[in-house]
């Protein structure tokens, strides 16, 4: 029965570029910024801080502070969020068998926005704003899930519809909060938060969010073959021995943990979860076995680069949500035209 098949050599160069790119982007972003630190010093500062190597200190305290407390957590967070939003977008697109779906489709961003806005008008400390945002993101998705769950099954169309309803509801709640917010101080704070920014990411933010995001990314990667089968539709997936309900719940849990964490730390960063999977399909094909790992690397690279643009393009920092949309929408339109909706 076994067939002998001549394997076409998959372009290894392509994968090397995909994997190496985020690391290059990462080191470049440590170097970029108004405060100039020499390249070799950056490596020594990081080595001393993380591995206690004990290079001779040839730099100022503020140089160390800029690298360790500002640029490093910001670049890592950018990578995590780019990777996380991209892989959850790709996983949702497979699950919904629709390449236009975004990771926010089940209402997580609307819920998280409301949570954050609520925290801002209540005037609670910053960490509680993040917690509220995270919690309402999760709550919104839970409501969506239970609304769409009928007779032991969750049809994907019902999920989409329920997600739309829940998003609309939380958008309305957000409007109420904005309407009642003080126009001099709180309203701009809410608006600014909603536009998304990595500017205030601290080492503490990073240590809190790295574990849930990394675990969820790994979780999605290990079940990537099941996402392939699930993309054929529930009925066929079931006939191939897949517990469709279980696997859908698992995908939703991992994706929601990623998106809720991302939104609670950095606000709404749109257009990543749609554009990057689409772009990656062009690079490595539609097979989720390759697609999901590719989205992790490409997504990380993309957000690191966009965040670098945010902090270097203008005198004041540009909110990243604006740039991802300004860059993402035309790229998406271009990809759609070029691939005519397919990825052959």
């Amino acid at each position: 029965m076994a067939g002998i098949r001549v394997h076409k050599k998959e372009s290894k160069v392509k994968w090397i570029i995909i994997i190496v790119a985020p690391f290059i982007a990462f080191f470049v972003s440590l170097f970029l910024g108004r405060y100039t630190v020499k390249v070799e010093e950056i490596f020594r500062i990081l080595s001393n801080y993380f591995f206690n190597i004990g290079f001779e200190k040839t730099w100022t305290d503020s140089a160390a502070k800029v690298i360790i407390e500002v640029r490093f957590p910001r670049a890592v967070m950018a990578a995590l969020i780019g990777a996380g939003l991209s892989i959850s977008g790709a996983a949702y697109q497979g699950m919904f068998h629709n390449p236009l779906v975004s990771p926010f489709i089940l209402g997580v961003s609307a819920g998280a926005s409301f949570g954050a806005a609520l925290g801002i008008i209540l005037g609670v400390p910053y960490v509680y704003i993040q917690i509220l945002s995270f919690a309402f993101g999760i709550v919104a998705v839970l409501i969506t899930f239970f609304l769409s769950h009928i007779y032991k099954s969750t049809p994907v169309l019902m999920l989409v519809l329920a997600g739309t309803v829940v998003s609309a509801f939380f958008q309305a709640l957000l409007s109420i909060v904005k309407f009642t917010a003080d126009g001099d101080e709180k309203l701009p704070a809410i608006t600014f938060w909603l536009m998304g920014s990595l500017g205030s990411v601290s080492l503490q933010d990073l240590t809190l969010s790295i574990i849930p995001i990394v675990i969820s990314i790994i979780g999605l990667i290990v079940i990537r073959w099941r996402i392939n089968v699930l993309s054929l539709g529930d009925r066929e997936a079931k006939s191939l021995g897949i517990h469709t309900e279980r696997i859908k719940a698992v995908i939703i849990i991992f994706s929601t943990v990623i998106t809720a964490t991302a939104v609670s730390v950095c606000g709404i960063i749109g257009w990543v979860g749609q554009v990057i999977p689409h772009f990656c399909r062009m690079l490595v094909g539609p097979d989720h076995k390759k697609l999901l790992p590719a989205t992790v690397f490409v997504g990380a690279t993309y957000i690191i680069i966009v965040d670098n643009l945010c902090r270097t393009l203008a005198a004041t920092e540009i909110p990243i949500g604006i740039l991802t949309a300004i860059i993402g929408a035309p790229i998406f339109a271009y990809l759609l035209r070029k691939t005519k909706g397919g990825w052959n």
Binding site: H97, V229, G241, G285, W343
Partner: peptide, 24 residues
């Protein structure tokens, strides 16, 4: 929805013999 290669589609038939975390 997704234009998998034919061999990839055929391989999906091996799914009932794979563990949850396994790929073919």
């Amino acid at each position: 929805t997704f234009p998998y290669k034919s061999l990839e589609v055929v391989k999906m038939g091996r799914t009932p013999y794979l563990k949850v975390f396994e790929t073919p």
